[in-house]
Amino acid sequence: MGCFQSKARRQFPGYEDPVSLASQTAFSVSEVEALFELFKSISSSVVDDGLINKEEFHLALFKNRKRENLFANRIFDLFDVKQKGVIDFGDFVRALNVFHPNASHEDKVDFSFRLYDLDGTGFIERKEVKQMLIALLCESEMRLADETIEIILDKTFSEADVNQDGKIDKLEWQDFVSRNPSLMKIMTLPYLRDITTTFPSFVFNSEVEDIAT
């Protein structure tokens, strides 16, 4: 390495070598470099510090930085592995890896469980599901009577909470999603297959010689 320090490494705290990131994930080196193009664009949209803050994440998701959204906040918190309030490039690639079509089903199920376990108790509790349901209704400007919400919760817990202790543990969740595979659709992003075509400029900015695709 000597004293050479890449431009990316200097400008992007948490930047990691694409070859190393590719070896830890389902992404090829080219795909990691294409993701870096996306990362650069998102991380410079509000504050050009080489990191993605929550406002930038919201802006990228909704094209609106002021929009508050429980689910987007939750995803951000799970991407922010180091809990620093910002997502660095290494975290970004490893988190998106879970959404890769080739990522393991177990990892996807595990991530979805943590996503819905809002308080991080190791269980998806009824009050958490209710909170998410109400947030969804507000987001979509739908109105449902309290009674209807309770009926939906009753139905959900009668199906998912097999031991009927009022909360869904990880084993119950695994069983529930195996019976409801459509719930895992959001855990796969087909876009990730075409990432090098979406961000072809990675070729001009590559710091890796002889990219293996």
């Binding site: 996306l38 998102i42 990228a60 998701l61 909704f62 094209k63 959204n69 429980l70 689910f71 987007a72 906040n73 939750r74 995803i75 998106l96 959404f99 996503l115 819905y116 599901v129 998410m132 349901l133 947030a135 969804l136 987001e139 979509s140 739908m142 449902l144 209807t148 009926i151 939906i152 919760l153 139905k155 959900t156 199906e159 998912a160 529930f176 409801n180 459509s182 719930l183 659709k185 959001i186 992003l189 876009y191 990432i195 979406t198």
Partner: peptide, 25 residues
């Protein structure tokens, strides 16, 4: 009918869970 769906089917339709928009330029 929403009442016939389980809560997670509804929740998974949230825009905030659709990361696909990250890839739209």
């Amino acid at each position: 009918k929403p009442s016939l769906m389980n809560a997670f089917e509804l929740i998974s339709t949230s825009q905030g869970l659709n990361l696909g928009t990250l890839f739209e330029k």
